[in-house]
Amino acid sequence: MISCHDAVRQLWEYLDGTVDQADRALVEEHLSRCRRCCGEMEFAQELRRLLAGPVPADIPAEVQRRLNQTLEEMDR
């Protein structure tokens, strides 16, 4: 059995799939009996979605023009 502190500390790694089999089983056992930590896990999943969300900026026309110019001038 592990404490809430230990379970929460490993949640992101658990969701990444980078904890080993034994630790994975301990986290799952803890989650099966701790409602608060299940809430933490759902929150961690949402945070990951937020992080993976859309990128705000398209490439500005002026930047694209300068980078294309770099390509055109290569090896001349």
Partner: peptide, 20 residues
């Protein structure tokens, strides 16, 4: 050279977005 330019040019928006 032409083939590199074609590749890089088509990838510019994606590369810039990752770099941002």
């Amino acid at each position: 050279r032409e083939s590199f330019r074609d590749l890089a040019s088509s990838q510019l928006p994606r590369l810039y977005s990752i770099a941002r």
